[in-house]
Amino acid sequence: MAMTASTPSTDPHAWLRRQTRWHPVEIAFWLATLLPFFLFPNYLVLASQIAITALFALSLDLILGYAGIVSLGHAAFFGLGAYASGILSKHGWGEPLTGLLFGAAVAGIVGYATSFIIARFRHLTLIMLTLGFGLLLFELANKAHWLTGGADGLQGVKIWPIFGRIQFDLWGYTAYSYALIVLFVLFLVCRRLIHSPFGLALRGIRENSVRMPAIGAPSAAHIRKIYTISAAIAGVAGALLTQTTETVALEVLSFARSADTAVMLVLGGAGMLYGGLIGSIIFMIARDQFSGIAPQYWYFWIGILLIVVVMFLPNGILGGLSTLLARWRKP
């Protein structure tokens, strides 16, 4: 075997296994997501919104944090999932789990189709293209009043009980449980993905896109794949929003949603799996607490926050914390 000469610190297998192992902080984090049931039973609706936003941020992290694709139009896939499941239910099929799958499929298919364009471009052109696709879809949904309800929003969404039994309640008990479970399951998928050979290839693309072809890597194929997966997950997040609110507003496709989610991800720390989750928790709670102030002043603080994060906290809150921790451990 290859390991005969290796000391524990350089044993390749042990080190790699350690990277994928669950950290106690991770377990604590997921246990803490159960706290709202006991501590803040009046805020379960908000909690479900946070879980949905976190799932969307997680999907953005896959392409932005891991593959380095800067997208300003990711809400396109969130919105596609939201409208797909909403329209499905409006036309008589309100079963939630198949609704999620339908949302994922529609977003995933559109994601796959556009991924061929995305994978060909980089830099400013790529940013403009993602922005353009997002705006285009927004305008389409706005104009297709007969299908989407346009600016009035999609009315008449009726969601059946989960497994035919568990009703959605007014207090968000079901909504939060449902959203949290979906988030956790898809988080497990993403966690496995980024610790897989494919996840390593994505980090390779982010770290050095010039070297990848020189080791024989089909970067474009990798990008198409992760873009499709990310779009499908964003579609699930959108479908979750539709199902827990029983309506679809045009806002699901807006540039503001794309930008907000990028802000949350960068605030928490991109490319760290938990960054999007932490970022969306902070962002959503802060917005809820300051909901009294006019939206333009809310964006003042978001703007300041962005400037501060970019200038002083390049890896977001999580990155800053881990740097602090590392310093504290070896004084």
Binding site: L193, P197, F198
Partner: peptide, 28 residues
């Protein structure tokens, strides 16, 4: 690849050669 370890970098190249770099459902 500045942030990857030496082992990760070379493993990536090996995985690309043997066609395993697209595998996302199995851990490294």
């Amino acid at each position: 690849f500045p942030q990857l370890t030496a082992l990760e970098s070379v493993t990536l190249a090996v995985c690309e050669r043997i066609g395993q770099a697209g595998v996302w459902w199995r851990g490294l």
